[in-house]
Computed example of a mutant assay.
Amino acid sequence: MSARDGTNGTGANGQVEMDSDHFSPYRPDGKLYGFVCVVTGATHPVGMAITLELAACDVASSEDYTSLAAEINKAHPNTKVIGYPYKFANEEDTLTLIDDVLNAWGRLDVWVASSGLLGPPSLEETSPDDLQKCFEANSMAPFFALKYAPPAMAKTTSKGNYPNAAPKGQKYGSIVVVSSVASTYGGCWGPCFTMSSHAALGVVRAGVATLKGTGVRINCISPGQIDVGVDLQGFDMRGLSSQLPPASLQSEKAQREHIGLERAGLPQEVGRVAGFLASGFSSYITGANLVVDGGASVMNPLTVPI
């Protein structure tokens, strides 16, 4: 949870003033500031990279969330990162988290749903319980964000008494769902992953109409092969502890042949896209599915599956 503050103004016709002092959360140096953000799945490599991006930090990643938060808070005292363990696919826990955010900061601006599970790699290994777990992690969590975050994002507030505080005079917000290229393609891993990733994109597409008039945008990021630091050695083939397939499942030769940029992506490259969607720079983008796969699905759509 990254707490900073910012706002945007409106003109006489109610349109957003793009040159307002607080509209864009990016300073001239390109760093994000000003918003109160929630990032789920922050202990995953991709979620961790997103947290670093939203915190505007250049800090080495860490597997220990407590250490990561301590490093960010020490390096950037105007940024407050708070660990908040909760069941991301639980309705009551989601509502409690939102209440705590509003009680502490008076506002909510960004919600990034980056939790995710692979599920088993084959139909034979897939049980109904596996399918349920994947739908909870990959699509139920974004659904709760869509349902409950926008009313909190509509809250306006006067300037707070914490560092970087500024008033929020207009309702607005950004919901970012981190899914996978499995949101539009089949066979990227197992059936659980494909079905629940399609459902995650469905949440985004359904959200555009339901969010009309709220000032809240919702978008999807669909990563392809991302090197999350996991290889096949000792890898749990059931996939229940990982978010994305290991990049090592495709050899370097296969990556050169099948990916336009000839390599797997990095978690930081997904984080930068999330920072863009969280910011005012993407103010006219909603309902989009930004595919971050180095061009693989465009160049060789039939070879994307592993």
Rank of each mutant, 00 (worst) to 15 (best):
D21H: 11
E71K: 10
L266W: 04
P25G: 15
G260P: 00
L240P: 00
V181N: 00
R217N: 11
Y84H: 02
F144K: 04
G202S: 12
C37A: 15
T184C: 06
S2W: 06
Y185D: 04
H198Q: 09
K80Q: 12
N161E: 15
L244P: 00
S67D: 09
V228I: 05
G116N: 03
A60S: 14
V101F: 03
D236S: 05
M18Y: 14
T156K: 14
G169C: 11
S2A: 08
Q250P: 05
M140N: 14
G271Q: 09
P267D: 04
L32G: 07
S67W: 03
I306P: 02
T303H: 08
G280Y: 10
Y86H: 02
V228Y: 00
S279A: 12
E136P: 05
P85H: 00
L131S: 12
G11L: 13
E63S: 14
D58G: 12
A278L: 06
S251I: 06
Q233F: 13
V298F: 03
T184M: 09
Y26G: 03
S242H: 09
G202Q: 12
Q233K: 15
L52T: 08
V177W: 06
G207Y: 14
L232V: 02
N103I: 04
A165E: 14
K74S: 14
G202F: 10
A3M: 08
D29C: 10
G234F: 11
A3P: 01
I98M: 01
P191R: 10
G207A: 13
P246C: 04
V291G: 13
K133V: 08
C37K: 04
T96Y: 02
I226W: 02
V59R: 08
D129A: 15
Y84M: 00
S122K: 07
D129C: 05
S179W: 13
P301S: 12
K147R: 15
T184F: 15
S279H: 12
E252Y: 01
R205C: 10
V46Y: 07
G6P: 07
A69C: 15
I259C: 02
T7P: 10
G30A: 02
D293V: 01
T43G: 03
A247C: 03
P305S: 09
Q233V: 09
A3T: 05
D100W: 01
A288I: 07
Y86G: 01
S248F: 00
G187H: 08
Y86L: 00
K133W: 10
F144P: 01
Y86A: 00
K168Q: 11
V181T: 04
I218R: 11
R205A: 08
G295E: 01
Y162R: 14
M140A: 15
I226E: 02
R238A: 06
S179K: 11
V291K: 11
Q132E: 14
P85M: 01
D109M: 08
L118C: 07
F276G: 01
I175H: 12
S139M: 13
S114Q: 05
T184D: 08
N78Q: 07
T156S: 09
T7S: 15
D93F: 01
V177Q: 13
E91F: 00
M237D: 02
